[in-house]
């Protein structure tokens, strides 16, 4: 049932045409809007908790580790041990490979 629904229905061309039609409808709604709207003084400036935006462009942009900070911070009990396991020592790389090989050998011996 599901393969009739998804696999045969999927066509990128149709998707693009429908997206363009949707964009056209959105544009028509946009045209309905009030043309007499005036630009205010602060339009286009970043909103930083009501403070005046700083002059230096580097202070405006919030990127890198600050993006999704909350998400990674909430998962720190899971992520920190994982990050710590990537020690960067060659011995550990080999150790992981030997361990995996031993586990796979046991798996194959027991289950096949």
């Amino acid at each position: 049932m599901i393969d009739i629904l998804l696999k045969d229905m999927w066509s990128p061309i149709v998707f693009i045409i429908v997206s363009l039609l949707t964009a056209l409808v959105a544009y028509m709604f946009y045209r309905i809007g009030d043309e007499g709207y005036k630009r205010t003084r602060h339009k286009g400036e970043p909103f930083i908790s009501g403070n005046m935006p700083p002059k230096d462009p580097r202070m405006i942009h919030v990127g890198g580790d600050n993006v999704f900070w909350g998400f990674t911070h909430a998962l720190r009990k899971y992520l920190d041990p994982l990050v710590k396991a990537h020690t960067g020592i060659i011995n550990d790389y080999v150790y992981w490979m030997v361990i995996t090989m031993a586990l796979v050998l046991i798996y194959v011996y027991l289950l096949i």
Binding site: V83, K84, H86, T87, G88, I89, I90, N91
Partner: peptide, 10 residues
């Protein structure tokens, strides 16, 4: 020393 040559990590 392999423990000191670990500039790429994490």
């Amino acid at each position: 020393d392999s423990f000191k040559n670990r500039r790429c990590r994490e």
